[in-house]
Design a protein around this nucleic acid. Structure first.
Lengths: 314, 314
DNA sequence: TGGACTCTTGCTCATATGAGCACATTGCTC
DNA sequence: GAGCAATGTGCTCATATGAGCAAGAGTCCA
């Protein structure tokens, strides 16, 4: 399209979209047929001269969602556009996750949830009555040692309460100091029952942690910043339900993993409905590791993360 | 429109504009009639949920243009959107002014032009052959004392040359030290002839200067920064064709005006086609003074200036 | 509780637009 | 310069959408 045609396309687009003139009227004004006007409008759209954007806190990016599903073999994806002016990125994504959960059919009878800041925000965004009779089970440990007492329990409890359901907490630390202690605690009837319930959940809802000192595992006292630095040196890009993974989605430190209580990654991979919620540039690496290694079936994320995932592969 | 309807409108807009589904298809997907889909789309547009923007260096803002004409009684207005990322604001506006001049019908036989940076940029943006046989006459003095020798002459000459026309320069300083000298020079046959031609021009093309030390009149040595500061204290907001005006469009310093050579503001007000080109926040005050006091019939400006003009009145 | 008024909805018919086709134009190669 | 391929154009007919209207729904007040 040469410069003259391009300028004509600009004028046509202005008259059509800003002046609300019909293609026939525009043709008369500019001395071209209405068929040519239509073609110029199509070209204006193709070349980005006309930009149509859906601007709303609940808006989605359906095209990007489909591209993610095709690329990564996901069952579903939810992508939310977040304008640069919005500072609470996680809020928009959490809202979208809450919307998705509310709309999920069939309603999951048992929902396994992790804990962390993202999950807490999602819990806060769920409406009372988002479902009825959902049993919410914790899938990673964290009741004890937690410096913010009750957050993990609160998250699961809130989600359950707002679905008029029950909460089943995992009464165990997230990470134990000795493998023997982890085995003993998992063998205990109380913990074993919760883990069995967790393994049988119809859906899982979880996020990821960044492999740095901001991790809630550091915050909670399970790991030190030095521990995490060592994990990074072993290739860790982040943690999923308390388990550190590398860029290929494999366990970064098997020894640490053996001491970690909660649902295993194999069980997450085998899940029929694993809803992964993630946002922010800091989590791009772990997000990529999760979606490329089959650790989720549904992804809820922001547009920038989605586009980064789509650009980075092949 | 309550929250449920608003969310429905978002979904409808996404399916229509991003998925290119017909209103009938969308109705089937969402369980509403195609007529309701149409109404939801209209609401989405009204409430800014759908934003359609023309993004191109040559794009205009036709609605804003019409509003300016209605508000200020202009014969025409040209408003160009300039994205925040574009640093050469004046370039876009200068291009629009060049476009306007080229499209002007009837072609002006005699075109009076001022000189300054904006006019120089416009001259550079005009294409060879933008018109034929146009006599370009300088309407404000400035050949002598100019520290950038020839700029004023170059501007007029370039415009004339690219219209295969003649240039008529005003061989006089912009401002003289004594009123008597100004009268003498204007009485001289050479200068008088040019001024007569200038007064009889079919169209005028000019910009405005900011009332501060960046003025080309300071740059050129006619005024000192102290002179301009004094003018500001007398209420000057800027200069038009070398004449300082206040917020109401009146001469700020009659004494200085008496020593200024060139087309008078009364003559500009009486013109049938006075094309005023202005951009940038620094010039908002003088722009307002010009459009509200009948000193132009056509305004070419950037979108931010246009909106500032529309907001500031009444 | 009923009537009046306002708002919303579904529909008919008119208008607007697009898909696909046949023909025209343009550009390239021999 | 001719032939061929690619691109562009105008058109017919089908599809999509909107304007205006009548009917239904909802709200408010006496």
């Amino acid at each position: 399209m040469n410069e003259t045609t391009e300028l004509l396309a600009v004028r046509v687009a202005e008259l059509y979209y800003e002046e609300n003139k019909s293609q026939d009227e525009i043709g008369g004004l500019l001395g071209v047929t209405r068929w040519k006007v239509g073609r110029l409008l199509a070209q204006a759209k193709e070349r980005g001269i006309v930009r149509i954007e859906i601007v709303h806190p609940r808006a989605r990016r359906l095209g990007v969602e489909r591209a993610l599903c095709e690329r990564f073999g996901l069952d579903d994806a939810v992508v939310v556009p977040v304008p640069a002016s919005v500072t609470e990125l996680g809020d928009r994504v959490a809202q979208a996750a809450a919307d998705y959960l509310t709309a999920l059919r069939p309603v999951p009878r048992t929902l396994g949830v992790s804990w962390g800041r993202t999950l807490d925000t999602i819990a806060g965004r769920l409406e009372q009555g988002w479902a009825t009779g959902v049993t919410v089970v914790q899938i990673n440990g964290g009741v004890s040692l937690n410096r913010r007492p009750g957050t993990a329990a609160n998250t699961a409890a809130t989600i359950a309460q707002r679905a008029s359901g029950q909460v089943v907490l995992l009464p165990s630390p997230a990470i134990l100091e000795r493998i023997e202690t982890r085995r003993a605690i998992e063998a205990d009837r109380t913990v074993a029952g919760v883990l069995e319930l967790a393994q049988g959940a119809s859906a899982y809802l979880y996020s990821a942690g960044v492999a740095d000192a901001t991790s809630v595992l550091v915050d909670s006292g399970y790991l030190t910043a030095a521990d995490v630095a060592e994990l990074v040196r072993k290739g860790a890009v982040g943690d999923v339900v308390g388990r550190y993974i590398d860029a290929n989605g494999n366990i970064a430190d098997p020894g640490l993993d053996e001491r970690t209580v909660g649902l295993g990654l194999d069980q997450l991979r085998a899940a029929k409905n694993a809803i992964f919620v993630v946002s922010g540039e800091a989590k791009h690496d772990v997000a990529r590791a999760v979606v490329t290694s089959g650790l989720c079936t549904v992804l809820v994320t922001d547009e920038a993360t989605a586009l980064a995932l789509l650009e980075g592969t092949v």
